[in-house]
Amino acid sequence: MLLLSALVFCCGVYTILTRKNAVSILMGVELVLNAANINFVAFAQYTRNGGIHGNVFTIFVILLAAAEAAVALAIIIGIYQNFGKVDVDQADLMKE
């Protein structure tokens, strides 16, 4: 499980670092968050008396990732309305 989490995390970081498309970068961020979720679930089985703290925190992370994705997509829509494309290299002006 930890190896899977590390693999997903590495894929997410590689996606963030190598992509120009803003939506692809957002997908990489989501991969990183899901890797953290896998880690929480993997370590949750070692809590005493069958505690569910790790699993509940995973749900919190999923909710926060959804909120962050909504805001990020709204920003990407704003970038597209101003620049005509979602290339992060082109979005280098504060205001036109």
């Binding site: 509940v56 919190f60 909710l63 926060l64 959804a66 909120a67 962050e68 909504a70 805001v71 997509l73 709204a74 920003i75 829509i77 704003g78 309305q81």
Partner: peptide, 30 residues
């Protein structure tokens, strides 16, 4: 045990969605 935490996160999610809808709106310039 986690009722208040989930309620707070749901309010945060609602605020995030409202903010996203506000950011993504298209202004009508006359």
């Amino acid at each position: 045990d986690y009722l208040f935490a989930f309620e707070a996160v749901s309010v945060l999610l609602l605020a995030a969605l409202v903010g996203a809808a506000f950011l993504a709106r298209k202004e009508v310039r006359e």
